[in-house]
């Protein structure tokens, strides 16, 4: 924890395996960590290290075999399907590597799908300006570049002003310059709205802009570091 002394997210003894019998594969082998409110936390690791699985469990779209996750005092394991949905609706925002925009809704409408989930969403026009999409708000996703689509995806996640923004390789499908733009945007969002951000990436350079870096390998946490020499997104290079 760095920015906040109070643990906002606590993970204890988290285990997850896939398959059964001979084909059983343990993906998370017992994880313990905490993330503070408003922190920018990066989950770093190579393919197969379990970072996406961990993110999915944190996001309540996958379940753990063992262990406990507590977000702001709410224990995910104790929630039934309805409560989890409600939880995701109120507290979580998701950004995927492949954007997953709704192809026949325009930019603004795609963001509205997120805004609809909140009783008190952010001002969409202002958000569109922050995202640099105001001029493109009536375009369909297929009329946008990859970077612009990812901006829409971030907008859709952030518009409901979630407590936690979960980003799964948000720059994985983007070129260098676009990736940097997206990282700057996420940084700006974090600063402006104060959301806790948990980002999965295999890009080592991104750890430099995080408050908190958790390095995974083979389903275990190898390093849990508080970054004291944080750089801005504009400063990092790879």
């Amino acid at each position: 924890m760095s920015q906040n002394d109070i643990a906002f997210l606590t993970v204890k003894g988290l285990k997850k395996s896939f398959g059964s019998g001979d084909t059983r594969q343990e993906v998370l082998k017992g994880m313990d960590f905490t993330v503070g409110r408003g922190e920018f936390c990066v989950l770093l690791g190579p393919s197969g290290s379990g970072k996406s699985t961990l993110l999915n469990i944190l996001g309540g779209i996958d379940s753990a075999d063992e262990g406990e996750i507590s977000i702001n005092g709410d224990k995910l394991a104790e929630m039934d399907e309805k409560s989890l949905t409600r939880y995701r609706r109120r507290h979580l925002g998701y950004v995927f590597q492949m954007y997953n925009l709704i192809p026949d809704l325009n930019v603004k409408e795609n963001i509205e799908t997120g805004a609809y989930l909140s009783d008190k969403p952010l001002d969409i026009d202002e958000l569109l300006k922050i995202l640099g999409l105001y001029e493109h708000r009536y375009k369909l996703p297929n009329q946008l570049s990859g970077g612009q689509q990812q901006r829409v995806s971030i907008g859709r996640a952030i518009v409901k002003n979630p407590d936690i923004l979960l980003c799964d390789e948000p720059t994985g499908a983007l070129d260098y310059n676009t990736s940097k733009e997206i990282l700057q945007l996420i940084e700006e969002v974090n600063k402006k709205y104060g959301n806790t951000i948990i980002m999965v990436t295999h890009n080592e350079a991104i750890k430099q802009m995080a408050d908190h870096v958790i390095k995974l390998r083979d389903g275990r946490i190898r390093h849990d570091i508080v970054n004291t020499e944080k750089l801005s997104a504009a400063e990092i290079e790879w």
Binding site: Q3, N4, R37, G38, L105, E109, N110, E112, T113, A115, Y116, S118, D119, K120, P121, L122, D123, I124, D125, E126, N161, K191, K192, Y193, G194
Partner: peptide
């Protein structure tokens, strides 16, 4: 971290209907 200068809007009608 305190959230600063945030403008809130109103909940839109279900965009999926469109």
């Amino acid at each position: 971290m305190e959230k600063k200068s945030i403008s809130f809007g109103t909940r839109p009608k279900d965009p999926l209907r469109r």
